[in-house]
């Protein structure tokens, strides 16, 4: 169909065969039933149980069970969360020529420039430094993007929250999907560099474990920041500042083996074990047991804090955003 815009008109008119139709619509062909959707009706009828919404102020354990139900229902709505995140990404590239490739190109430029500079400054071998830097930067961008995005996980969708009752974790899932897809943009660069410099991942239990822990931690992080961000509008600048400091403290630009004396203090930075359990297996470098231990401890603490925070505040989120 073609769109014609006439200067003397306020609206765009269709210029095809159904032009002859009167603009006023005829009354509905079938007043009752109002819709003709056998599949929709069948699917809705197939759910025997009538949805019941029973709401009252939460007391004690009610917080926990409602939060669990919220997360469970959001998993059932996975397709919705995925589509929301996917459309966010698609939307970002409407009207862009290179679209997603801009992210890839930026990664290439950043890694090339930083690689040259820091390999010289730190007197390291470019061959081993470049893939390390590339993987670290991409992983850090993934973490940083999730943190920044996570602060606005609920405030960004206040319209949706006020329009329809929906599990709040759907919005968290949306942020997860959006950032995962953004991360995928740069995966090509990593693969190419790994192939060129012959980096082989360690193929054992550690790789899937690291990735799982990473994903679940990002989920918990998004949940925490989303709740805090809904209550305190100061969260984005606070998170931004913390991230900036952690970027230099955490071994991202520099390899962790540059520090040997007192390397246990590095474990106090929660980002280091979290990144290392993904980076180590992928880069084929051994990961010390103490790093795994700290990563597990940090993860458990993060999950407990985020879940309790969410459970306590879930019912208030709609009032805040």
């Amino acid at each position: 169909m073609r769109l014609v815009y006439r200067a003397d008109m306020n609206s765009i008119e269709r210029s095809d065969q159904d032009d002859g139709r009167p603009p006023q619509s005829e009354p509905m062909a079938h007043p009752t039933p109002i819709t003709d959707e056998p599949h929709v009706e069948a699917e809705l009828a197939a759910r025997r149980d009538e949805p019941v919404m029973d709401l009252m102020p939460e007391r004690g354990f009610g917080h926990i069970s409602h939060a669990v139900r919220d997360i469970r229902e959001s998993l059932r709505l996975f397709r919705l969360g995925w589509t929301l995140g996917w459309l966010d990404i698609k939307l970002r590239y409407r009207g862009s020529l290179l679209g997603p490739f801009w992210v890839t190109i930026s990664t290439v430029i950043l890694v090339a420039a930083m690689g040259m500079l820091y390999a010289t400054l730190l007197h390291t071998d470019l061959k081993s430094y470049l893939p390390f830097l590339c993987f670290s930067l991409v992983l850090w961008a993934y973490l940083g993007g999730t943190v920044t995005d996570g602060c606005a996980a609920f405030t960004n969708v206040s319209g949706l929250i006020h329009a329809v009752r929906m599990p709040f974790s759907v919005h968290v899932m949306r942020v997860m999907v959006r950032n995962f897809l953004t991360f995928l943009h740069s995966v090509g660069v990593i693969i190419v560099l790994f192939a060129v410099f012959r980096i082989a991942p360690t193929l054992n239990w550690s790789l899937p474990t690291g990735v799982c822990l990473w994903m679940v931690d990002l989920y918990a992080l998004t949940l925490t920041l989303g709740v805090l961000g809904a209550r305190f509008r100061d969260m984005p600048p606070i998170a931004g500042n913390i991230l900036q400091i952690l970027f230099f403290v955490t071994p991202i630009l520099w390899k962790p083996d540059l520090i040997y004396m007192g390397r246990q203090y590095m474990l106090l930075d929660p980002c280091y074990p979290l990144i290392e359990i993904v980076r180590g297996p992928f880069m084929g470098t051994p990961v010390r047991p103490s790093i795994w231990l700290m990563a597990s401890i940090y993860s458990v603490v993060l999950w407990v804090v985020s879940f309790l925070l969410f459970a306590r505040m879930r019912g208030r989120l709609a009032y805040w955003v």
């Binding site: 809705l44 949805p51 019941v52 029973d54 709401l55 009252m56 006020h162 709609a318």
Partner: peptide, 15 residues
């Protein structure tokens, strides 16, 4: 179900 009650109870049966 958008604002959960601060006091009292809301029950809605049906979609």
């Amino acid at each position: 179900g958008i604002y959960e009650p601060v006091e009292g109870r809301v029950t809605v049966r049906g979609r």
